[in-house]
Nucleic acid binder design. Sequence first.
DNA 1: AAGCTCTCTGAATCGTCAC
DNA 2: AGTGACGATTCAGAGAGCT
Lengths: 369, 369
Amino acid sequence: MTKPRKKGAAALPLNTILDGDCIEVMNSLPENSVDLIFADPPYNLQLKGDLHRPDNSKVDAVDDEWDQFSSFAAYDKFTREWLAAARRLLKPTGAIWVIGSYHNVFRMGAELQNQGFWILNDVVWRKSNPMPNFRGKRFTNAHETMIWASKSEGSKYTFNYEALKSLNEGVQMRSDWVLPICTGHERLKNENGEKAHPTQKPESLLHRVLVGSTNPGDVVLDPFFGTGTTGAVAKMLGREFIGIEREEEYRKVAEKRIKSVKKYDKEALEVSTSKRAQPRVPFGQLVERGMLRPGEELTSMNGRYKAKVRADGTLVGKDVKGSIHQVGAAYEGAPSCNGWTYWTYKKEGKKVPIDLLRQEIRAEMARPN
Amino acid sequence: MTKPRKKGAAALPLNTILDGDCIEVMNSLPENSVDLIFADPPYNLQLKGDLHRPDNSKVDAVDDEWDQFSSFAAYDKFTREWLAAARRLLKPTGAIWVIGSYHNVFRMGAELQNQGFWILNDVVWRKSNPMPNFRGKRFTNAHETMIWASKSEGSKYTFNYEALKSLNEGVQMRSDWVLPICTGHERLKNENGEKAHPTQKPESLLHRVLVGSTNPGDVVLDPFFGTGTTGAVAKMLGREFIGIEREEEYRKVAEKRIKSVKKYDKEALEVSTSKRAQPRVPFGQLVERGMLRPGEELTSMNGRYKAKVRADGTLVGKDVKGSIHQVGAAYEGAPSCNGWTYWTYKKEGKKVPIDLLRQEIRAEMARPN
DNA sequence: AAGCTCTCTGAATCGTCAC
DNA sequence: AGTGACGATTCAGAGAGCT
């Protein structure tokens, strides 16, 4: 008997490609078990026979509209069903990415909202090398749209803000991503030298998605696995994947591809983290440790206000008492204030933010004794 | 009796702003009479509490009564009705543009398709100066989406391919447009010096829409006229406009604005295009694109130092972590360092500056397609 | 005049934890 | 489950005012 890795994840077929219709397969997996779903569904579905109108010899306008509506209805039914199955699989803290073009993305987005998913961003993949519009009748179709949504309004989700900011030269990542389409050696070929899949996504796209919205060890499911870009990048990044794909050809190509992929070293997978992840240090510790003395005077960063430190780690100023945050907020008439960066103390004649003292304590805590 | 300008256009109140609910007003106008509709409907933002910038200033949110809907169902009903009224007004050769954000655009897009409109492109307005995400919880919402659709599948529509190509330095116009938001003197103020409308669109956006999808003399209708950007640009470009707006304040501002607008001389249409600076390439892109692998070792140009690449595009060396610039500066004890020219990677046994990889990306970005 | 600093602002679904 | 305290968090560009 194997030990389950995580609660609720016992029965998950990790790092495998499952054969079959994604709706049925997803419904056979345990609910609330997956951290992220990335889905690149087809939009050119073959319609089922019963939804086709009878083969009239002549088509008038009314029939035309009915036909159009019936095909949208079939597509909507498909979308509703696979999204519901995906939603069932997601942990409450999970999230989903879907990608599409104007043919299908509006219907997917509306259905996501209808099912209670909470859209976090729509992200535009701006292709640096799209296919031109040869006939000159429209704009070059130079982008695709992704939708990123949490499971419900208010639910927690993973967002590695600092890592993405690092990926973007220190500026916060925007909702428009400029990345090239998948070409060259990355583009998989079949035995005949033809491209193995018509819409293979670039690994760079998945890299950004997975670095930004999962942590190492998270389970990532792709219900339209194709040639397995999601699985390949998940493996490189130390995430677990589950693929679902009904075409044997694609499964074979994906299997081989993923086998040849190597996981990056552990050190390379650590990403920049935010202060939020660091341990909380009560201001009182600075006093207890003698880094600040009771009675010592702090000055606001802008030099306008002063307050005295008390033995219990509160401040007392003109007509105000309370925490470093409360006194700062009261002085500034602001709804809130980060006292750590607002207050300074005198060190060798110079104003130094008290946050530096907190950093000393944190560094000491991080040291392995 | 006045001579009708065009067949079916006899009763059109050209170049006026009509007062009232846009659905009722549109239904009172003659069908099949309008060449283009540009619609910027309420987005149904569903904002909850206040939002403050990191400096504690409060963001002036779009909390206007006209953007409040009780549910998606109510918003969908509204969308269905105004789109049906718009469709009735359009000539068979007409087209429509709608603009929205992820809050509403998926619902609009799906309803456009349901009613038989034929989507020609979705066009992304990439804002060069969007509002940042102040809390670091999502991607910067840096774009809005427009949908361009003809009245029906197969119907003729206007597309001035060559004019747009000229606007784009001789290169085919793409589906992503980089334009700044409306600020400065273009942003209209009321008597109190406050912004006259919370969501005024830039004239540059309408300029491109109207140059691309109408001809001089065409009738352009905007059912959510606001402060009249559509009317102002239409007048400049020698198109006829019809505005519908139910808020008297907005109508007054728009009226005054349009009165002061002059129709362009032909040659005034030439716009000087600013020379583009070299695009900034984040180092993280080299990692995302697989040009460098997480875990790969870089060597300083002088051969003295080494550091490893991490998945988020930062470097980790001996006791140092950070961007390519930060780690280089730390090693050299210098205040700053150009990491692009400082670091090298191994290619076929030889040390190659990473700047060469950046040049590859830039070359690709500069390529016309 | 040119350049500098400082201030302000923009369609935004913008916390989390302990008690 | 509701309350209160902590404390993390921003980019581009315009305009005003000053040197």
